[in-house]
């Protein structure tokens, strides 16, 4: 197995914040501004060739009082090289925005909408930043840790 962390660290030494390979999952934490550069590289570099954005989600570390508050987590997979990589970007509550990857992988479209819906993290350049699982009139973002799980909201119909 190639050490993907090393490849990325050598290529972009000042964009990588930290890295680990817990339980065998290779993980790179990137600086927010470096996301598009690195993603473009890992998608097109022939030795990496991550042609599939398998999963995109976020984790809210509010309960652990961590700052910046959110992690946006990307799981990449390459069907030709058969390897996986997890890339994370930390997002603060104040500037709750990351660059959208919809132009790289169309699968990011719905995943990013879900993250916006559930966590309230916006994606810059997304063509259709709408809620996906909840309805438009829903208030708040349910997977944030400060959204109480037993909080109730009336189901309201469309306004128009």
């Amino acid at each position: 197995m190639t050490d993907l962390i090393e490849v990325i660290q050598n290529k972009f030494p000042d964009l990588v914040e930290s890295s680990h390979s817990q339980c065998g999952d290779q993980t790179v934490v990137l600086k927010k501004e470096g996301l598009l550069t690195v993603m473009k590289y890992v998608q097109h570099e022939p030795s990496l060739h991550f042609n599939m954005l398998m999963d995109l989600t976020a984790v809210d570390y509010w309960a652990q009082l961590r700052k910046p508050r959110f992690d946006v987590v990307y799981h990449l997979y390459s069907t030709t090289k058969n390897h996986r990589l997890r890339i994370k970007v930390q997002v603060s509550e104040k500037e709750c925005e990351v660059d959208s990857l919809t132009s790289f992988w169309p699968s990011a479209n719905w995943f990013e909408r879900e993250v916006w819906d559930m966590f309230g993290v916006k994606f810059k350049g997304h063509p259709n930043m709408k809620r996906i699982l909840m309805y438009e009139e829903f208030k708040g973002h349910p997977l944030r840790k400060d959204y109480m799980y037993n909080k109730r909201q009336p189901l309201v119909g469309p306004v128009n």
Partner: peptide
């Protein structure tokens, strides 16, 4: 503490569980 992603082949494709533990 840690995080893990484990995919299995489900009926429709890759069914992955991403579990974060504190």
């Amino acid at each position: 503490k840690g995080e893990v992603y484990f995919p299995v082949e489900g009926g429709n494709g890759e069914l992955g569980f991403y579990v974060v533990s504190d």
